[in-house]
C-alpha cells in the first residue's frame, strides 16, 4: 500500500505536483496515467524519498520512506533504465544494491535469471541495449522480493516480446498479492495491464477509478455514416430530431443505434456508402479527460473537448 496525502511539489513558480491524494492498493496493477510532463516521475521520486515534497506526505505501508529498514525489501522501483554505472557489470550493480540491504548474493543470481540477463551478468552495463537496461532495472526492483513494486514507463524502448514479458510480469506480481504501481503516457498500454487507474494532468488528480468504470464513463459510442447525398441526409436527420457531427468526409451520430439510422435512410431511399457503429478509443477518452483539465483550469484558448485537436496538442501548452 502506498498512500499519498496532499503531495505537492513546487519548482519556484511552477507547480509540478499539485495536492495529490490517493492510495495504491495491493493485489492489482494500478496504472498511473498522464501526458508527458504531468508530474508522474516527480511523484514517483517523492514516493521513494528522492525528491523532497514542498508539502504533503507519502506513506509506504504506513511509514515514511526514510523509516523503512532495508527499503528494497518493502518497495522496489524502476525509475530510469539507465540509473546504473555503465562501467559496472550487471552482476556487481545488483550485488552492491543487495549488500546495502543485507540481501544474500543468491538473490542477485535469482533476479538475473528472472529477467533473463544471466548470460550477460558479467558484461558492463554500458554495452546494454535499452531493453536490457530496462531488464536490469527491473531485476534491481525485484531484488528484495518487495511487497510493493513501482515502474516508471517500463515498456519504453522494449521490443514487442519485451513488452509482452513485462505485462505478464506485472500481472503475475499483482496476482501474488503485491502492490504494483506503473506509470505510462499511453492509455492503450494501461488498458491491457491495469485494473485500476490514477490519472493526473498538470500535477493534479483527474481521476482515481477502476479501469471498468473508466471505460464505461469515458468511451463514447457513435455511428459513422458516409453518403453521397449529404445535404438530403442531414435534412432527414433534422426532421427525425437527430444531429450529426461532421468530420472530414464522414458524419458521426451520437445517441442513436446503427439500425435506426439504416432504417431511416431506407425509408427515404438514401444511398449510404458506410454505416458503422463506432466506439471512441480509450486513448481518445484519456485525451479528452486531460485536455479538459488543461482547458478548464489553465487555458481559455484551447479547443473545446471532443474537437479533433491533434493528439497531444493540448499537453504541449502546459
Amino acid at each position: 500500500m502506498i498512500a499519498l496525502e496532499g503531495l505537492t511539489k513546487r519548482y519556484g513558480e511552477k507547480v509540478a505536483v499539485n495536492n495529490l491524494t490517493f492510495e495504491v492498493r495491493p493485489g492489482i496493477v494500478t496504472g498511473f496515467l498522464g501526458p508527458n510532463g504531468a508530474g508522474k516521475s516527480t511523484t514517483m521520486r517523492m514516493i521513494l524519498g528522492l525528491d523532497h515534497p514542498t508539502s504533503g506526505a507519502v506513506r509506504i505501508e504506513g511509514r515514511r520512506y526514510a523509516e523503512l529498514r532495508d527499503p528494497l525489501r518493502t518497495i522496489g522501483a524502476l525509475l530510469d533504465a539507465n540509473a546504473n554505472h555503465g562501467g559496472r557489470s550487471a552482476y556487481h550493480h545488483l550485488l552492491c544494491l543487495a549488500q546495502s540491504n543485507g540481501l544474500p548474493e543468491r538473490r542477485v543470481r535469482e533476479v538475473l535469471d528472472v529477467v533473463g540477463l544471466s548470460a550477460v551478468a558479467r558484461k558492463k552495463a554500458k554495452g546494454f541495449s535499452m531493453g536490457m537496461g530496462q531488464r536490469l532495472g527491473i531485476a534491481a526492483a525485484l531484488l528484495g522480493d518487495p511487497r510493493i513494486l513501482m515502474f516508471d514507463e517500463p515498456v519504453n524502448g522494449l521490443d514487442p516480446e519485451g513488452i509482452h514479458w513485462i505485462r505478464t510480469l506485472m500481472q503475475r506480481l499483482a496476482a501474488e498479492g503485491r502492490t504494483v504501481f506503473v506509470s505510462s503516457h499511453l492509455m492503450s498500454e494501461m488498458a491491457l495491464t491495469a485494473e485500476h487507474l490514477v490519472v493526473i494532468g498538470q500535477g493534479r488528480l483527474l481521476a482515481d477509478l477502476s479501469m471498468a468504470d473508466f471505460i464505461q464513463r469515458n468511451s463514447r459510442a457513435y455511428v459513422r455514416v458516409r453518403t453521397p447525398e449529404r445535404e438530403r441526409f442531414l435534412d432527414v436527420l433534422r426532421s427525425a430530431g437527430l444531429t450529426a457531427m461532421e468530420t472530414g468526409g464522414t458524419l458521426e451520430l451520437d445517441g442513436v443505434a446503427a439500425e435506426q439510422v439504416g432504417e431511416l435512410a431506407a425509408r427515404h431511399g438514401l444511398v449510404l456508402h458506410e454505416l458503422s457503429p463506432q466506439q471512441a478509443s480509450l486513448e481518445e477518452a484519456f485525451m479528452r479527460l486531460t485536455a479538459e483539465s488543461v482547458e478548464y483550469h489553465a487555458h481559455s484558448d484551447t479547443p473545446p473537448a471532443g474537437e479533433r485537436a491533434p493528439w497531444g496538442a493540448d499537453w504541449k501548452k502546459g
Binding site: 524519498g49 527499503p71 530510469d80 540509473a83
Partner: peptide, 11 residues
C-alpha cells in the same frame, strides 16, 4: 543516474 538507485536503497 546511479544516485537515485543508491538513495532508494539507502535513504
Amino acid at each position: 543516474g546511479m544516485i537515485r538507485t543508491s538513495l532508494a536503497a539507502v535513504p
